[in-house]
Computed example of a mutant assay.
Amino acid sequence: MDNSAHVAAGGRLRDRFGERDPASLFAVLGVLLLAGGVAVPDFETLLFAWGGTALFAAFLLRVVTRTVTLPAAVTTDVHATMARNARRLTGGGSSRYVPEDGSVALAVDGSERRLDPVGERLLATVDDAPDATVEERLPVLVDALVNDLELAGRASAVPVEGGVEVTVTDSRVGTDELFDHPVASVLGVGLVRVVGGPVRVEPVAEGEQLILTCRFE
């Protein structure tokens, strides 16, 4: 390539609202309303309240639109590729989440290798409660999947013989590759910390739902 030729990519964050800038619009509106409150004393209370609300909305929108996000398709492709490679290296057997040296490891049947599960890193931001029971911890994990980690649109759990069954709707990460899927990994790691023993998670994709059966061995 000619040294005089340069290739560059823009660093502008993608605007979630297209080419519009709602934060600036709310900021201008807020300033105008505050100015109106000064110019029209009879309505100053109302105009000041509206102006303050508009400025606060502008601040929140500025924070939100500056947040860097990745499309779900990108995270799905990255996970599917890495999970497929890991499954090939370990022989492709079913997997269990097991306690190991104070943490949790991913053990693959038919292989002596131990992998670091995705859920170990994801749960680092979720409060740990080693003394909790499964009944106490499961709602926390389900809530974390939806509200903290935003890995699912909705999730629910019911007890089954020898474990629990979790149904996830609208998984943010695709289900083309279920080996150590982030949702399964969070449940497996979280439950191992509670039961103190191996947990086998069997994920099955059914339409728009991801059904995970977690059994305590």
Rank of each mutant, 00 (worst) to 15 (best):
S156F: 04
L61E: 01
V192S: 08
A35T: 11
A73D: 11
V160M: 11
G92W: 10
L115T: 07
R12M: 09
R114P: 12
H181D: 08
N147Y: 14
R87V: 03
A152K: 05
N85T: 11
F59P: 00
G110Q: 14
G188Q: 07
V204G: 00
T125G: 00
E100Q: 13
V7K: 10
A72E: 09
V126L: 01
T45L: 14
L122R: 03
E112N: 15
V158K: 15
V173D: 05
V166R: 06
P130I: 09
G37D: 03
D176V: 05
D180Y: 07
V183A: 09
R200E: 12
L178C: 08
G52A: 05
L106I: 11
E150A: 15
A35E: 10
L29H: 04
E202T: 14
T175I: 09
T76R: 07
P71W: 08
G11E: 12
D148V: 15
D21S: 07
V158F: 09
A205T: 07
G37P: 02
V78E: 02
G37Q: 06
A54K: 01
G207V: 04
F216V: 11
D116F: 04
L149V: 06
V78H: 06
V173G: 01
V195K: 01
P203W: 02
S185V: 02
G110E: 13
